[in-house]
């Protein structure tokens, strides 16, 4: 009896130890891979203040390169185009995510089909979207590529994310509140403005932020449809591929963009999470 008990006890101990080891291996591997995302971004920041960014180990540090952003101004034009595209995409995302997101949970027919069609770009590689949009609009319809085509592909990329952000909020919206408002005498527009708009606002803001950030940093699709227009990621890309001498400038610029992106995405995910919890 005692022997059996101690055997079971030992087995349990062994099991617990095994699980503890497994958890540690999991965490080291998981956080290790996550580090593969962030280490380059942090290193980007380190290189941006290195005197010699091409030397293996960073030695002396300087803010000189950030200063050179003011003298070497090739990035300003692309930045403004990027911002212009991002703002348009952001607004498009807000409006369309609002219109589609509020109605989708209430649709009776074809809800799954529509959702599938809207989320399709998530599983179509960017390069396919880029080349397909180019072939259709440029080769078949012979449209001139430019700002509008950038807006289009960025919107295709961003809309699924914006819609998901919106659906997180709108699928929790209680349609009976609209009946209650109607019952109290509110006309359709009034119901939308007083009840739906404030309750769905977080979703709309999130959709807009997603749209803005995804557009600001989009590259694989832009490569095909930019025409003569150059966005900031395209500028970085061109400098990278031509192995130009502006590498420090690129590091500085992208460090700034990364800081803004991280701040904005943390903010929007936090906003969404806070709203869902309350």
């Amino acid at each position: 009896m005692i022997a059996a008990e101690s055997f079971a006890y030992k087995a349990a101990l062994r099991e617990a130890r095994l699980i503890r080891v497994a958890v540690w291996v999991t965490l080291i591997a998981g956080f290790g891979v996550t580090a593969l995302i962030y280490a380059p971004v942090i290193w980007l920041g380190v290189l941006s203040i290195s005197v010699d960014p091409l030397a293996g180990l960073p030695g002396a540090f300087t803010m000189r390169w950030y200063g050179s952003l003011f003298t070497s101004t090739g990035w300003i034009q692309p930045l403004f185009i990027s911002l212009e595209v991002a703002v348009i995409v952001s607004v498009l995302c807000m409006v369309s995510a609002m219109l589609v997101g509020r109605a989708l949970p209430r649709l009776k027919h074809g809800r799954g089909l529509l959702l599938g069609a809207f989320l399709l770009p998530l599983v179509v590689p960017g390069i396919v979207v880029g080349i397909d949009i180019f072939i259709y609009y440029k080769m078949f319809l012979t449209f001139k590529m430019g700002l509008w085509s950038l807006v289009l592909v960025h919107f295709i990329w961003a809309f699924p994310f914006a819609l998901i952000g919106m659906l997180v909020i709108s699928s929790r919206f209680d349609v009976r509140l609209l009946e209650a408002a109607a019952d109290l005498g509110a006309a359709p527009w009034r119901r939308f403005w007083d009840i739906e708009r404030p309750l769905l606002m977080t979703g709309v803001v999130t959709a807009g932020m997603f749209g803005f950030m995804l557009s600001l940093t989009e590259l694989p699709r832009s490569i095909f449809v930019a025409g003569r227009t150059q966005t900031l990621p395209l500028f970085t890309w061109a400098e990278t591929m031509s192995r130009g001498s502006h590498i420090s400038l690129i590091y500085c610029l992208n460090t700034l963009i990364a800081v803004i992106s991280v701040a904005l995405s943390v903010l929007s995910v936090w906003l969404l999470g806070r709203r869902v919890k309350s």
Partner: peptide, 15 residues
């Protein structure tokens, strides 16, 4: 895990 969606792919690869 969310933030990487919003990073410029060429910048973070270049490093």
């Amino acid at each position: 895990l969310t933030v990487p969606f919003f990073l410029d792919p060429s910048a973070r690869t270049l490093v």
